[in-house]
Design a binder for these strands. Structure first.
Lengths: 221, 221
DNA sequence: TAGATTGTTAATCGATTAACAATC
DNA sequence: TAGATTGTTAATCGATTAACAATC
């Protein structure tokens, strides 16, 4: 009874962060209340989809009125789990790791970077985003000390699998992978992959189609 | 007849870069030929989905034998449009822009970064990844000079919409947005959004469910 | 009450998957 | 030919959307 009564569809889960961001930006503009139409516009989706998505979480709006922005924000945060503390380690402090360590979108949403690790021990002690870079060898100790559940991999592709293996054996069950490399992990471990180049390739595909598009293309009788 | 005869489903397009990466990694290991089963494993999908996806591009395998790795790689590259040159500009050279400018996954796939722009003119002239940072004011001139079709936004959220507007008016029709901000653009302009924090939030949601999962959860009679 | 807007229903659409005929 | 594996079919599953009854 205390836990979410229903499973939330994966497509909906992926949009909850978008709604959260839209609600935050409404609050920044001192908007206290909004309709599904307004929120949908701010989030870049249509309102039917928004209402359907929210209906999976519960009934947090008022018919004829709309949604209380702060209340809905809290409910979505709670559903995602952002009301609890999430200690995170980042492994691989190159340009990208550096950017991630400084990324305010993490800290502002309940994620707390507890350690930055790099395999290159000559960088140990270097200060990045207020944290000293530590040796990768300390991973297991750090995971246990802080109860880290989420690991971020920002190493080159060649190192990523070894890092993932070490994370898993240290007890991490959720991995965010920025290395352009498919990781193999045991059942029960979640990996999400962010491939910067994939996104560019998908854009290129559509851009190419635009250029070769025939004027009478697009509709088939 | 020279252009792709069929429309490729969006879900398939999103996976083509993954297949391409898997094929590259097979080639690195001197694997010249593979079955759909092997390639699917390397790409992290099941083989039925892989074959279905490839069937949208054409018939590039041999029954009873499998796929020629190099030939298939070429066909996918061509379909995505990676056999042509894609000049790219990156706007916002903070930590993330810096990381993107140095990211080898771009240059190795037909993407050519022609300019790095930043609104902070005190940074003009600074050398990053072999390119001098230039003023944002030069955007339109650079787009025209190099025929830039794809723009990358790595600015803070507050600046992103203005950058997008400028890109659109300069003629860019494909934008990769790393700023945590929904962009509004005219019809015909493609925006893909990469939100580093969203991915972490989706992981947190699943991690949270793992912790609260009942032992007899998962199946309902 | 009248007007507005949610939450839900049901129809449609697209994606996934297993199975297998085609064929090397 | 016999064995292997693709490319396709058809069934299933999940996501999207429009419409509207419920209700503030």
């Amino acid at each position: 009874m205390t836990v979410s009564p229903t499973r939330i569809p994966e497509a909906t889960v992926a949009r909850l962060p978008v709604y959260l961001r839209a609600l935050n930006s409404l609050l920044d503009s001192d908007v206290r209340s909004c309709s599904s139409e307004e929120l949908a516009t701010a989030a870049g989706v249509n309102s039917a989809k928004l209402r359907k998505d929210l209906s999976h979480l519960g009934s947090y709006g008022t018919r004829g009125v709309g949604y209380d922005v702060e209340y809905l924000r809290y409910q979505i945060s709670r559903e995602i789990g952002l009301t609890q503390d999430w200690p995170v380690v980042i492994v691989g402090i190159g340009n990208l790791g550096h950017a991630l360590a400084n990324y305010s979108g993490f800290s502002s949403r309940g994620f707390r970077t507890v350690a930055l690790l790099d395999a290159d021990d000559s960088r140990t002690g270097e200060l990045v985003a207020g944290l000293k870079i530590r040796s990768f060898d300390e991973l297991t100790a750090i995971v246990h000390e802080h109860g880290v559940a989420i690991g971020v991999i920002a190493t080159p592709a060649a190192a990523a699998q070894a890092v993932a293996d070490q994370m898993v054996s240290a007890g991490i069950r959720s991995i965010l992978n920025f290395a352009p490399m498919v990781l193999s992990v045991p059942d029960g471990v979640d990996v999400r992959m962010v491939d910067l180049s994939s996104e560019l390739q998908i854009l290129a595909y559509h851009e190419q189609r635009k250029s070769t598009l025939q004027p009478d293309d697009g509709v088939v009788a």
